[in-house]
């Protein structure tokens, strides 16, 4: 409750029915500045409550249009409620209580609908007539994240160990990272090399032949387990670096 019931003082006084004042011979001039305390008997208050609770009466909170002591927020809500009342053709005296009650009802209804849909495992994205959003793999589930690998260090370690197969792989992953950083491909762990090749071909066709060759070499070495002598590795590495420089990222691949 944000206010109190207001009834006219006249009605209150009438209800209390005080005795009539005897006429005076010379009435003194009224003192406008003086204050008079009106005492409302308990019986009158009870009577008022009883009347207010009767269904035939419709007592509402009186909201002054401009009360300088009202806060800005309070005035804002009052205006919103007035607008709602005018728009919806509701009763003439809106109340905060009614507004919040409907807000709570709305939230409860939404929660119930949501729970029911979740229980039925309904894909809500379909309800709006668009394709379900592509699920993004959680990077934490990955064995490694190309955006976090220290390529120069790992590449050097692989080369020092003579593990050229791993070195070719790291060089290729570094190329993928560069392509992803330059928004030429959309990195997704479930995409194949050929998918990236198609993406690059649509974004930057000039780079396609070089990346296609780098992909072929990587696949032969990694999936095909092609033995890689140092001389051949040097050539493969050179092609990777050349492509990396075309992409403007010699640091990662060089």
């Amino acid at each position: 409750m944000l206010g109190s019931l207001v009834l006219s003082a006249q009605f209150a006084v009438g209800a209390a029915a005080p005795p009539p004042t005897p006429p005076a011979a010379q009435a003194p001039a009224p003192d406008r500045a003086a204050t008079v305390r009106l005492r409302q008997p308990a019986a009158a208050t009870e009577r008022l409550r009883e009347l207010a609770s009767q269904r035939e009466f419709d007592y509402r909170q009186s909201l002054a249009d401009s009360n300088p002591q009202d806060s800005l927020l309070r005035r804002f809500w009052r205006r919103v409620l007035n607008w709602l009342r005018d728009s919806l053709g509701g009763p003439s005296a809106p109340s905060y209580e009614g507004f919040w009650r409907w807000v709570i009802y709305g939230l409860l209804a939404t929660a119930v609908v949501f729970v029911v849909l979740k229980l039925l495992e309904v894909d809500l994205t379909r309800a709006f007539g668009r394709a379900p959003r592509r699920a993004t793999l959680d990077y934490e589930t990955l064995s490694e994240n190309i955006h976090e690998l220290d390529f120069p260090t790992q590449l050097r370690a692989a080369e020092d160990a003579g593990n050229f197969r791993l070195a070719v792989r790291l060089g290729y992953l570094a190329l993928l990272k560069q392509l992803s950083d330059r928004a030429l491909i959309e990195w997704q762990p479930d995409k194949t090399n050929q998918a990236y090749l198609r993406e690059l071909a649509s974004q930057r066709p000039a780079l396609r032949p070089a990346f296609a060759e780098a992909t072929r070499q990587f696949e032969y070495v990694w999936y095909g387990e092609l033995p890689l002598p140092p001389a051949l590795y040097a050539t493969v590495r050179a092609e990777q670096v050349a492509l990396g420089r075309q992409l403007g990222g010699a640091i990662l691949t060089g």
Binding site: F151, P152, P230, T235, G254
Partner: peptide, 13 residues
């Protein structure tokens, strides 16, 4: 940081 390795790229691979 340039990655100095024995397998420096050839200019024309």
């Amino acid at each position: 940081m340039e990655n100095e390795t024995p397998f420096q790229p050839a200019e024309t691979p």
